[in-house]
Design a protein around this nucleic acid. Structure first.
Lengths: 239, 239
DNA sequence: AAGCTAGGCGTACGATGTACACCTGTCAAG
DNA sequence: CTTGACAGGTGTACATCGTACGCCTAGCTT
């Protein structure tokens, strides 16, 4: 069996090609553009041919998500705070490249890149940051929630496909005059925010730093490698 | 026109009934169970009848999301930290009741409850917490990202419909023996976490407190009503 | 030379959202 | 009381989706 072949010298399909094409398709046209039929078209093949390489659409998506995980870097040779900062921004960027993956990174059956990634993050938190087990879990959940949640916001506000947002933004504002007058604090956002040089990158950085600062203050930090904060051994205050 | 009537004494439909039934349907069977045909069935009506009350499925979903927003409380008569804590847990609980809404709260055209909610939160941050405008935006984005992201994690880990998770959990672990041996830090999570009395509620609380603590330390806080933290006027450290 | 098999093809089915035309009970206007 | 408009429920129909099932063939193994 070789790759060139079949009817007409066309190259044969394989799982990797299917997954890559699927990612490209979804990147270009959004999640709803990812259709078995369109994917088959793009590969010059009949829809049912895909099912020789993926069991069904769910499994296709699992494979695509694992490709995204493979793009996320978890550096191992730096202090934990730098590593976690890097992995967070790396994840955000991957999700910017693949908006269809937002909200789907932890659904379905995890692939090898997924497992590798989570293991690497836990290793960083346990071995490098020396968090006690339970604290490492806290930290992981907190960081993941923030990163995934931010990506979700960024996607829906900045637009899944770069057209939507403008339209939606306009639709809300155009519901004048009965619109923003009743909501002065919303009106402030609409009128003031554009003047501030708002960028999602800065916004992301702010929250990420605040979270990493908070984690740096948690107990069981090694004295040398910790971040900027003093490390008073405190849980976040009870309320 | 009265509500009883039409063919056979059956009560007439209206938008509110359609929306409520749609929410119940999605609550019970997950998002993919929400089908115009099933919804019509449940209302004892033919599918096309629904289109006299909602323009299309997108608008139906917009209306449903607004019902969820209406369930989220933003107390106005307490200090900002308490208010924000309450609104966050209130949002989390609403999303637990309506898992189909996770990741969809800010999509589509915002309804009145949505606008009211966002205005109330911004009012709390600007008027009560006295954050400078840009800081209020930072705070809002951070809290929202966390709450939405946490809800997303909780949904996919605990299961959209309460069956899934167990199956998925098992599927991963059962991929033995080539499974967890290569991932010692993941293995630790699988074996240790069940022993720790892990609950999502505690987990949520941890991150939320950390974030609110961090925000309490931000500049322009009034001296009296702030939370527990000291308020050194610092942005999160640059890195 | 024989035949096994991987992988592409064709057809077909049920489910979905919804366009369009129709039909009917209710109520306001005369 | 009659009439006509109209709000709202009905029926049919279509494009599109995922995918089950069976066939067909090229090329490798024996």
């Amino acid at each position: 069996m070789q790759d060139t072949a079949a009817a007409g010298g066309r190259e044969r399909l394989n799982r990797a090609k299917v997954l890559r094409a699927a990612v490209e398709l979804a990147d270009g046209g959004g999640f709803e553009a990812l259709t078995m039929r369109r994917l088959a078209d793009r590969l010059g093949v009949v829809p049912m041919a895909l099912y020789k390489h993926v069991a069904d659409k769910r499994e296709l998506l699992d494979g695509m998500v694992d490709l995204v995980f493979a793009e996320v870097e978890v550096p191992a040779d730096v202090d934990w705070r730098t590593a976690m900062h890097h992995r967070a921004t790396s994840m955000r960027q991957a999700l910017l490249r693949h908006p269809w993956a937002v909200g789907r990174m932890e659904t379905g059956t995890p692939g090898p890149a997924n497992l590798h990634h989570h293991n690497a993050v836990m290793r960083c938190l346990r071995r490098d940051a020396r968090f006690p087990f339970r604290m490492a879990v806290h930290a992981y959940n907190l960081m993941d929630a923030y990163v995934y949640g931010f990506a979700l916001q960024e996607k829906t506000l900045a637009g899944d496909i770069p057209a939507e947002a403008a339209r939606r933004q306009k639709a809300v504002v155009d519901r004048q005059p009965s619109g923003l007058e009743d909501y002065p604090y919303l009106a402030e956002v609409v009128t003031e925010l554009p003047k501030t040089g708002f960028t999602f990158a800065d916004e992301f950085e702010f929250g990420l730093d605040l979270i990493l600062d908070g984690l740096s203050r948690m107990p069981q930090q090694p004295s040398g490698t910790t971040g900027s904060g003093s490390n008073s051994p405190l849980r976040p205050s009870a309320r």
